[in-house]
Design a binder for these strands. Sequence first.
DNA 1: GCGACAG
DNA 2: ATCTTGTCGC
Length: 255
Amino acid sequence: MGSIKSELRYVSNISFQRTIISCSFERTYKSLSMLTEEAAIAIQEELRPRVITTDVLPDPIKIIAGTDVEYDKDTNLIAGSIVLLDYDTLQEVAVASHCMEVTFPYIPGLFSFREMPSLLRAYEKLPVHPDLIICDGQGLAHQRRFGLACHLGVTINKPVIGCGKTKLTGEYTDPGAARGSVAALMDAGDHIGNALRTQDGINPVFVSVGHKISLATATDIVLKMCAQYRLPETTRLADHHARLALLEHKKKIFG
DNA sequence: GCGACAG
DNA sequence: ATCTTGTCGC
């Protein structure tokens, strides 16, 4: 069947095939459990050169999105949610969720293969698409410089910011206690992201480039989205909706 | 061998 | 991710 090679080619072609995104992922992720760790890494290596690390954003950003995936405690069900906010007012514009069973194990460094299926399906359900996405996880701040934020951005060809609660890889020095303080996250001599203090005296978040945005712009925007809490409003809302979607889905299936 | 390890 | 209220510390 030569399945691994054809699988690799198939996944690699996705970003060129916006119009058939839906069926692409249907096929790809139906057999995701067949993908070996080595093949998944090969996909990352192949897609990595497509990441754009400069600002290629709509002039005034109108709609910003947040993503999150919720896991059920005692089944293998997950819910991916994407919430759309008006960039200026932070009012919710739309939300879409998708529940399914997890098809890939948690392996540090291969996170996108676990969470992207549900996120892409949720993305397809949106009535309109966002100008920019902040996703829950790393972008370039990754062993192979291709975290979830990069994979998502390259796949749907949209600007994406990676914003994680903890770091995956790299070292940093204390940014300082004040909100807005920044320290470079370094790995093997590369400046892969920033540790950003979003609230006074509260643990920093880790910002990195996902796609079509610079680290400086990404850091500014994340700070702006954290007016009141440690995490961006986009992430907080997506988390909330993913939780609701999962509960609703379980109610439908069970009781 | 040991620690670290997005969610 | 999930477990989870009160409690420790500034």
